[in-house]
Write a protein that binds this DNA or RNA. Sequence first.
DNA 1: ATCATGGATCGTCATTTGCG
DNA 2: CGCAAATGACGATCCATGAT
Length: 106
Amino acid sequence: MAVTGDETETGSSGDFVIWTLSKSTSSLPQGGAGDGAHASMQPVEEASQKRQLRLMKNRQAAKECRKKKKEYVKCLENRVAVLENQNKTLIEELRVLKDVYRVKTE
DNA sequence: ATCATGGATCGTCATTTGCG
DNA sequence: CGCAAATGACGATCCATGAT
């Protein structure tokens, strides 16, 4: 873990605070490179808000997705442990049965 | 103390998936 | 078919650890 001072979004999933996007990624608007030019475009302000909302939602979705994946992997690891134990038990059982059979047929 | 390296986590973009 | 959510992939950052 050791996540740096990172909002820790603990309980109350759902309501995320809109902190002043210090990061804001000046990356290209993607998908609309030159869109500022069109007259039919939404006001810049609204488009920007829309983008921020989308980023925020996706950020949250990514967190959720990673959490889910972690749990899935944990489940698989548990299953592996269980199956390994079962395997051990069965091998031992087989060994005993073989031994019993050997003694009987001698 | 400083540097290099590797692992964990995060945010974002691009793509896929599922639903109305 | 269009849209929102889910997920994969990538690069950035932080932190721990070992070598010098």
